[in-house]
Design a protein around this nucleic acid. Structure first.
Lengths: 189, 189
DNA sequence: GATATCTATATCGGCTTGATATATGACGGG
DNA sequence: CCCGTCATATATCAAGCCGATATAGATATC
């Protein structure tokens, strides 16, 4: 599924600008499951407009650049549904935290502890975003409540495990008085 | 963290070729938390060799191209540890399944059901890979057991939720006799 | 015996990211 | 009250990365 399709999907919920779509990836409905940069979003919207899948209306603003508000056409809507029905790719994950855990035996204990704290905080922030999403009127839809619950159970499972097993990871890290040994890989007399 | 660093990390466990590193991303220690294509791995290894972070030894083979086996130098090892200690980026996830759930109210029920089945199967396969990893002698390390357990609780939480709440999602999908309505967005008499 | 999969490296077009540029209003701290 | 930072809003670009493809014999499956 390419970014054009995902942008078209967001527009089924109502018109939006490129900037607003970026915010939806960061804080909104899609936070934690998808992301894209401006360098992808703006060209995607331009191409969607060329293909007749969206309409573009320029909203004048004082000081700022004109806000280009995009809205999905019936053709674009049908095309989105067809694309999403064609099949989905497996989840793609890139977790630097998981990599750090795999190499915890090479890292100073303080670094590992800080990374665990950081990871727990990020997951808590993600949970808070889900709480906000639940208050949104659009979450009256059963499938959105499903998606929120799905995110919640996975985040809670991760936080619980991190809090109850972090001792394991910290124990395998390099003690503060031994860091030079870890880097060189050689124990000096 | 760039791919060079991740490749260097894998080489702390022993020498490997580019092809073997790719397999580790797919089935081994890093499956489910990282991935990279040949188009990234081979140039990364070449640059690591130029920088003196790895050594390259060509192993002759009959029929196939020579196998280029890379091994980490002490300098490369120290550099890897320094890079990994510099900080980590938040997890990046791209889940087409999650997107499909968000738009379940636009998709035929059969499509949603198939996607849920597919997602459960992928998670079960990931669990099976973790079981294999646990049998590996390297998992004697406490931190690797931590990583395996961490993956397991998240996958189990996801599977449990999908199995017990899938009815919610299927109920919000488009019934088989109403698909034309969903695509056009208009109800005809 | 045919067909597919595995091993193994390499290249390349096109897409994506992350940083940067531009311009202005708002908000809060010192 | 000034100054830095943040938010709004679009756009560009180098550098990096992905997915597909090429090559080619060996091994497995049917």
């Amino acid at each position: 599924m390419d970014i054009k399709t995902v942008c078209a999907g967001l527009l089924t919920f109502g018109e939006a600008s490129g900037y607003e779509i970026k915010k939806l990836f960061e804080d909104g409905t899609f936070s934690g499951v998808y992301d894209a940069s401006f360098g992808s979003i703006y060209p995607a919207l331009t191409r969607l407009a060329e293909e007749g899948h969206v309409l573009c209306r320029a909203e004048e603003q004082q000081g700022r650049p004109d806000k280009k508000v995009y809205s999905l056409t019936p053709k674009g809507r049908a095309h989105f549904i067809a694309e999403l029905s064609r099949g989905i790719q497996p989840d793609k994950v890139r977790s630097e935290f998981a990599i750090a855990t795999i190499f915890a035996h090479l890292l100073p204990r303080a670094v590992i502890a800080a990374y665990i704290d950081q990871q727990i905080e990020e997951h808590r922030a993600a949970l808070a975003r889900l709480d906000l999403a639940e208050c949104d009127p659009s979450s009256a839809m059963t499938n959105l409540r499903f998606a929120i619950g799905f995110g919640r159970v996975q985040l809670n499972a991760a936080i619980d495990y991190l809090e109850s097993h972090r001792g394991m990871l910290e124990a395998s890290a390099v003690p503060p008085d031994d860091e030079a040994v870890a880097v060189s890989g050689v124990k000096h007399a």
